[in-house]
């Protein structure tokens, strides 16, 4: 197996409270997984706010150092303290897509400046014609064209177009991994599925691995190959996406699934919270327990 990304027993602790306080908050607690270079997949991280999913993504992107454990990209350590040249190499291979496309782009800068500077910086290409062809190729991949984007400011595009441009920018250097942190939560309802379908086509047509971070179980079910479900920094269930979401084993995963609002019985108000599950989840919260492997390769955290 050719390992693209290896996350080994990663722990992240933050100091909380004042300057002299000794309180620690464990945002990510002992997370491990591996992505295969030859088998592109959509790897989904599910969790509520405060579950550590964004901290994990920031550590993978090298924006945050790890407290313990290591993150290896093609066998080399990448977390935080690498020097500029290794960092540039890493950035050519791993690219982010952020949550809010309206905040990701400077409103006073034309969109194409981002595309041009990424091409020039990361691919070291100076010839303007060549830059233009590369940008156009990548905009085609996301269903946009050069003419639609050039010379436009962010406010002139819709949220869906902006998010697709953000993905096109990330694709310029042919990355092998895309880290997408809640890429659809700020996009209009009628355009949401175009972004989700795009992530799927990146995997199928261009062989890009995608780490898809979300709290939306339905889109996760729709596109993911594998998922991990995180609760307060701990992975509670990980493995193949559809079997897990069809039949979750951990009480927290069951609670998440039970809380998804269904449209199957519209107008009849299915709003009663799953109080029994909430109780079990609260009782187990904070316990470490042990991961148990099931027959269908999934791992579930169990408490004695």
């Amino acid at each position: 197996m050719n390992k693209l990304l290896e996350v080994k027993n990663v722990v992240k602790k933050f100091n909380t409270g004042g300057l002299f306080s000794n309180k620690k908050l464990t945002a990510v607690n002992d997370v491990s997984f591996t992505l295969d270079k030859n088998k592109p997949e959509i790897f989904t991280i599910i969790g509520e706010s405060g579950s550590g999913k964004t901290t994990l993504a920031r550590m993978i992107l090298g924006l945050e150092t790890t407290t313990h454990g290591e993150i290896l990209h093609e066998g080399k350590r990448v977390d935080g303290n690498a020097n500029r040249s290794t960092r540039m190499n890493f950035m050519r291979s791993v690219q982010p897509v952020f949550q809010n496309p309206f905040e990701a782009f400077n409103p006073l800068k034309k969109i194409d400046q981002y595309l041009v500077s990424t091409t020039k910086e990361l691919l070291q290409i100076e010839d303007d014609e060549e830059v233009k062809t590369i940008i156009d190729d990548n905009l085609q991949k996301v269903g946009l064209s050069h003419a639609e984007i050039m010379g436009r400011y962010p406010h002139e595009l819709s949220g869906g177009q902006l998010q697709r441009t953000a993905i096109a920018r990330a694709l310029i250097c042919n990355p092998s991994l895309l880290v997408a942190d809640e890429p659809v939560s700020m996009v209009d309802a009628s355009l949401k599925m175009s972004i989700v379908n795009l992530l799927q086509s990146l995997r199928d047509d261009f062989g890009v691995n995608v780490i898809y971070i979300t709290h939306d179980l339905a889109t996760a079910y729709y596109i993911s190959d594998r998922i991990i479900i995180m609760q307060k920094g701990l992975v509670v269930e990980m493995g193949p996406a559809r079997p897990i979401l069809d039949d979750p084993k951990h009480p927290y995963s069951q609670l998440l699934k039970a809380s998804v609002l269904s449209i199957a019985d519209a107008g009849n108000g299915q709003l009663a919270p799953a109080t029994d599950l909430i109780e079990i989840v609260n009782r187990n919260e904070g316990q470490i327990g042990k991961m148990r492997t099931y027959e269908d390769t999934r791992q579930v955290r169990e408490y004695s």
């Binding site: 177009q161 309802a189 009628s190 599925m193 175009s194 989700v196 379908n197 079910y221 979401l245 449209i263």
Partner: peptide
């Protein structure tokens, strides 16, 4: 479109978005 494009757990049917923007 709004109703039919909502993905659901247990359903892998392909969903699409509308072209264009509001």
């Amino acid at each position: 479109h709004l109703v039919s494009s909502i993905p659901r757990i247990g359903d892998t049917q392909r969903r699409t978005s509308l072209e264009g923007k509001p």
